[in-house]
């Protein structure tokens, strides 16, 4: 990461998501996998929405996905983002199924296309936190 201090909001783990955020710090995209039916989900839900099992394990995702949809924010809703607009925000559909809130790097807005293949980039923004962004798959 750049030398200067990162000024945008930094997410923090809660109990349910700690392996996700810890994994990001180690360059891994971690998902919850249902122990009964194998369906992947994001952390935060105790129960598999397919089979309703509450048994689960953590599994590393491939980091590959596609750009499901995106927007370019112009409105200055948050003081920390005032100097950032316009900036992109996105939903990436992971190869394992779940959709993740993120943004796209190494891509001009005009080159962003829905369904384009993307891959995870691990951006260490502080001593404690790494943001998982995505870039076009080369």
């Amino acid at each position: 990461m750049a030398d200067q201090e990162y000024t945008l909001p930094i997410p923090v783990a809660d109990e349910a998501s700690k392996p996700f955020f810890d994994g990001a710090n180690e360059g891994k995209l971690m998902l919850v996998k249902c122990s009964q039916c194998g369906t992947y989900r994001l952390p935060g839900r105790e129960r598999c929405l397919d089979c309703w099992s509450t048994e689960s394990e953590w599994a590393q995702a491939s980091g590959n996905g596609k750009l499901y949809t995106y927007g370019i924010m112009h409105q200055k809703y948050h003081p920390a983002f005032a100097d950032e607009t316009p900036y992109n925000y996105a939903i990436v559909e992971l190869a394992e199924g779940p959709r993740l809130v993120t943004n796209i790097v190494d891509c001009k807005p005009d080159d962003m296309k829905t369904d384009m293949p993307v891959e995870a980039v691990f951006d260490r923004v502080s001593d404690e936190a790494t943001l998982i962004r995505f870039r076009p798959t080369h």
């Binding site: 930094i10 997410p11 923090v12 998501s17 948050h78 983002f81 993120t102 943001l131």
Partner: peptide, 12 residues
């Protein structure tokens, strides 16, 4: 805290 913090982190 948690996954909903990603919305804030990415400015959504």
């Amino acid at each position: 805290p948690g996954m909903s913090g990603l919305y804030t982190a990415f400015g959504m």
